[in-house]
Write a protein that binds this DNA or RNA. Structure first.
Lengths: 130, 130
DNA sequence: TATCAGTTTAGAATGATTCTAAAGTGTTGA
DNA sequence: TCAACACTTTAGAATCATTCTAAACTGATA
């Protein structure tokens, strides 16, 4: 709990009740893929009632501070990933199925980066099913 | 024009006025990345007034019939790509910048596909800037 | 050319996300 | 310890891409 406060502070986030609860859940040591909706459901299940607006704010704040990765996989919801290491994903739209690929993937044969641009990150999505 | 009609028919799409216009624009030989909005703007510029609903319907129909690729890159709009070959993309969210990578990319080191799943496609997105 | 299934369309509805502005709360300095 | 204020939270409204509805229209067929 004080760990969490310190953790938030060290990421320039004021440790409010809500952020402490959310961070406590998200960063419990197990990698998680969540959406605003799924996070809200999970917190409610644990008797922590936090408004959706705050959940959106918090996910955004955590993302902006590098505590979460944002995944754009579907047009109807945004996923966040608590694993912020460089990694990739298996994804099944049909089954809402999302698994990290932590193995070291190599992408070979990339052409020259467009003029005046820098590569920020390379994302590999392995789409399953159809 | 009759080419386009045949083209639509051969893809089990009834060649309506609107579809002919849209297909004529989309499949003119040059690869295009479009959104419903950008397509609407482009058609309006060419004096072809087609309702947004029809534009959405048509993009969806073309996609369902394999004439377009769908690209989920941003949470606030869906891109379609007239290049349906296996290929990848450079993408800059900041600049709404999207370029095909047609070179042969190889992704090495993928782990085993999850049980009972089949790989549908592998998508590589090279994110530029930040 | 009549008929009808497939299409188009205006306008309403949807739903995730963002915005607003008012009330609440960490933090800081004295 | 506490006043003061900047930062947060929140309910509810607003936004906006996309989908839905159901009525009018049209390509295909016989």
């Amino acid at each position: 709990m004080n760990d969490i406060k310190q953790f938030l502070r060290s990421n320039s986030l004021r440790p409010t009740k809500q952020r402490i609860v959310i961070a406590g859940y998200l960063f419990d040591g197990t990698d998680k893929h969540i959406t605003a909706e799924s996070l809200s459901t999970e917190l409610t299940k644990r008797k922590h009632i936090i408004s959706l607006a705050t959940i959106y704010n918090t996910l955004h704040d955590f993302y902006e501070n590098g505590l979460l990765k944002k995944l754009i996989l579907s047009s109807d919801r945004v996923y966040f990933d608590t694993n912020t290491d460089d990694h990739h994903h298996f994804y099944s739209e049909k089954d809402q199925f999302l698994i990290d690929i932590n193995k070291n993937i190599k992408v070979n044969g990339l052409p020259k980066t467009p003029k005046n641009k820098k590569i920020n990150k390379i994302e590999v999505i392995v789409h399953l099913d159809k």
